[in-house]
Design a protein around this nucleic acid. Sequence first.
DNA 1: TTGTCGCGGGG
DNA 2: GTGTACGCGACAA
Length: 877
Amino acid sequence: MRDDTREDSQKDEWLWGWDATPGIISVWAERDGRAIVWRREPASAGGALLREEARYRPWLLLDSLVDLLHLGARLVVVDDPQHVTPQQAPAHAVTYCELVGPGRLRYLVSAADGRLLEQAVLRGAGQRLGRPASRLADLGEGSYHSVPPDEQYLVATGRACFRGLTFDDLHRLQFDLETTGLFPDHDAIFLIAVRDNRGLARILDVQEGARQGLTGADAEADLLRRFVALIQARDPDVIENHNLHGFDLPFVARRAELLGVPLPLGRPLWNGEHALLRQRPAARGYGIARGEPEEIGDLGQMSDSGEQTEQTKQTKQNDSTDGDVEDKSGEQRRQGPPEVPTRRGRSSGGRYTMPGRELIDTLDAVRRYDFAARDLPGHGLKAVARHFGLAAPDRAYIEGAEVYATWQRDPDRVRHYALDDVNEADGLARLLGGAAFALAQMAPRRYERLADAGPATGILDPLIVRAYVRAHAALPAHSVSDGEQHTGASLYLFASGVAQRIVKADVSSLYPSLMRQYRISPAPDHLGALLALVDRLVEQRLAAKSRAKAAPPGSPERHGDEAISAAMKILVNSAYGYLGAPGLTRLADVHAANEVTRHGRATLGLLCRELAARGATLIEGDTDGVYFAVPQAWSVDDERRLVRDVADLLPPLVRLEFEGRYAAMLSHETKNYALLAYPSSPSDPSSGDDGDDEQRLLLRGVAFHSSRAEPFGEVFLRQAISCLLRGDIPGVQAVYMATADALLRRELPTLQVTTRVRLTKTPQRYLASRTSRREAAYEALLASGRTRWSRGDQVRVYRASGGRFAVLVEGADPRDYDARYYVRLLQTTYAARLARAFTPDDFAAVFAPPEQPSLFAPPLETIHPILTTLAAPPVDD
DNA sequence: TTGTCGCGGGG
DNA sequence: GTGTACGCGACAA
């Protein structure tokens, strides 16, 4: 009993660290052993900001002491190299201890100054290798492990961020740029919207400078200086925006460089001056992101916002300014000019940082969310904000390419738009940023790094390293692939067409459950850290979920517990991915991963067989869950009993859950289906036909919505499938006929037949390739007289009468679309998505060409949707 | 037709 | 200090 408790608290330390220091917001450490910790009191305690200078003992892990033997008596063995008193070893000593167990990295070494520690190791390595060693990497793969200074500090102290703070205790600021275009070499910033969660909402723009007689580059430089002053004055803990690292920061950095404006946006370090914006070391970032210069040149001349701006012209004259985002007091980190976004430059690598503040890109949070949920229409700010209901009713929308032109015509509209942007960025950060906030309370990394980290390499690995160091266990060398093939999950389509009384049952967190149930652990993990973490995460997540449910909706407590639950879900679900990524994760073990998927396939097979044996009609099974239909006469209780009966056949940690029930389903292909929810009263499918069926319709898969689809097609699909799932076949045909009719009469607005296309070629590039291949979007631009556009512009294109392509100008509605073409598209593309629901004859009758209705078709009333069985339940193996 | 590459975001 | 998935459309062979 007492052993259990001690073991539990040890494993809690692996997950949460062991030092309860509250309120840490950010840590900045140098390799020389100095650290600065910024802490904030909870708002309830005054919310003051504290700045503490600290020291830590830099450390690293080695596979051998041989490179340190040259130190002689200056190499001293101690119990705990991360905490050494002057009595234990002199100040200039390198200290070490030997770690236990079979891992290759079996020496924890430390010194008062990390640079001296490294130099000592490198000197010994140079002697051993017979050539100078200048970096730890020269020691060779797998013979050492070191982490950045701030993480050394957090591991050594057992501290973590945000203890005792709620999300809103952080001082969070959002800013958003409005620019004349996408390319900072040639476009300029004319407006910056700034808001924070302490009541600020401000627009900075070049018109203010203009009132003092500043124009062009002077006005832009003045704008940047006022921006810097505002950040310093507000002194936020966190700076957020959507695509912050991919657009706003590189744009600001580049413009500042060209204009010669320094960017001291960080908090003061030791010298008392605000630290400059810098790039986070990310080797991969630039090279590929620099882009092809001649293309950038093209873009400058072809900017869609017309002529080059005053600002840009003037800026060009002082291209050689020495603006520098480097912190002169720090190490020389920058290896080249700041990254600019280019065609290939989605800047997953290029990241920025500023001491004392955490830079959070809501695009990262959106991607992390959608990785699991897969229900977002896109990852853009506006689309996501609308999806989550964050968009204000009077939200201003301006197409990207129109922003600058709108500014010149109607600046207040752009101001409104930019404030809407920062407000939505704030809402998004609150809604989706909680997970990273909670992760920062666990893992020994800064918040901003946890926000963009991959969960396996970026979070689990640091947790595991900290656990090994804490337990004084020798750390296994980094895994390499032994060639074992990774096997996957199973996916079955049992039936296609239409079925009623649908139930979805799935195993919550299947893979981690199987790891726990069958104690599947990667072979090199002699400490058992991964499985112990998964155990803790699953247990504590359940607790956090029930705490969240008990807390008042909207309360900080609820937000906090939901965030912990979301964070733990991310970690739990990545434990399996961790196993299967040799070369990426330290303790990968593909054999163990395959053991998990093997149990997973067996579990899904068992579910399917047992459900079918008890009267269910299987429709689709995927990895960890099944859609099936039950007989018409069954009650909800019958459905639940079935799921419970089958759940009882599974081992205790593998929990089958009743996930949902639906009135009807159209099964099209695997992962492509439509579900009709029951009317408002979930227990009574026959009640309340209030005509909002379309809202109760859930469409899944690319067959039912693709970003390129014409709006009229999506509308048709929703209406037709809604009728279909209600059994209203005449209604399906009526929708079809009405849509065709509206097209033929051109009653549908032109917007309904357009597709949104993003332009990837410059005019020159397209003209060069035009002879060999014509592309609709560019032909449309040329046909409408546009010879100038910018890469990255999005346009709406449609097919106009006479077979030519046309661009739809915002606000226009010429109704000159090729109606017959779109009627054909309605038949061949959209109606076809309902084909599985009918016999071929019935399909032909329902969707006859509108101009020649079939005389011999069966009456619609006699047509019923069908369900076709495609496969039997998998057999036991 | 089939295989490979690049994109997703920001103005 | 390593990225990353996944599905689609564009382009080359």
